[in-house]
Design a binder for these strands. Structure first.
Length: 274
DNA sequence: ATGCCTAACCCCGTTAGA
């Protein structure tokens, strides 16, 4: 069973890419993120032979799944905050497996804007407050921990994939120094990701490719990042023990990043022994 | 040291991405 995750950076803009990928990649399930629109073309994809489910909002965020087998939605929002209206979480069952598709908040900027007199000094030494966006990221990760802990305690096997917006380790970016001030690279973000792993989850790519730097899932559109391979690895799959034991392969498919008018992310694929 | 690029919305410059 082949399952992929891909941040498409607007489904509308990447519609042909997604259809092409579904037709040719041999996937059983494709989870996508950052749809950037309220409308989701369920019928059109059903005509192409895919079962679908989506959580969308206007302009921002949005996650969806395409599957060869029927999709039963378990949750269309991350529990823990009824006032959170951002479309970032979809939990479902398909092909006999519980899957979770996430678009984890980016969180930049890390700190609230400094007063003019304080600019230039280190915001951490200054004791600046975290920004609203970074606070939201960390609280979202705390809520995610609670949800995954519940699934573990209930002995429900699952795989969670998506755009985690966290660079796990220094080897997961081309130049760690350039990311020191970024929300994706903060100690708090990385600790929250490790905490998820401490529930007994396996990070699929790193488990199968230990000590292998230079493998990325995102390359900025700017400054020639793609041809220079100046990327970061932020799209991940985490597997509960039952599925980790069935993990055959985990690869990053760089091809779609080289297509015309590409997303800035490229798909990550896991293969599970049926 | 800074901006670089892309997408959505409608304000066609601003916000967000990462």
């Amino acid at each position: 069973m082949k399952i992929a995750s891909w941040n498409v950076n607007s489904l509308k803009a990447r519609r042909a890419h997604v259809e092409n990928y579904l037709a040719k990649s041999g996937l059983d399930v494709l989870m996508v993120q950052e749809l950037k629109g309220l409308d989701f073309p369920h019928k059109e994809f059903e005509k192409l032979g895919w079962h679908t489910a989506a959580v969308t909002q206007k302009t921002y965020n949005g996650v969806a799944v395409f599957s060869k087998t029927p999709v039963k939605v378990i949750k269309d929002a991350l529990p823990g905050d009824k006032n959170d209206e951002q479309a970032r979480y979809l939990e479902f069952e398909t092909g006999g497996i519980r899957l979770i598709d996430i678009y984890l908040p980016n969180g930049n900027p890390v700190f609230s804007e400094a007063s003019p007199s304080n600019r230039g000094s280190d915001p951490r030494l200054r004791g600046d407050a975290f920004s609203e966006k970074f606070t939201y990221k960390l609280s979202w990760m705390k809520r995610l921990y609670k949800r995954l802990k519940t699934l573990r305690e209930d002995n429900i096997p699952f795989a969670i994939g998506g755009d985690f917006n966290v660079i796990p380790e220094d080897m997961d970016c081309y130049d760690p120094k350039k990311w020191l001030d970024d929300a994706l690279f903060q100690p708090e973000s990385r600790a929250a990701l490790r905490k998820l792993l401490h529930l007994g989850l396996t990070e699929a790519f790193r488990a199968l490719h230990p000590n292998a730097p230079g493998h990325y899932t995102f390359w900025d559109y700017q400054a020639g990042a793609w041809p220079k391979n100046h990327g970061i690895r932020i799209d991940h799959f985490l597997l509960s023990p039952e599925l980790a034991d069935r993990l055959i392969n985990c690869t990053i498919d760089k091809a779609p990043r080289g297509w015309d008018k590409p997303s800035d992310h490229t798909p990550i694929i896991i293969e599970i022994d049926p």
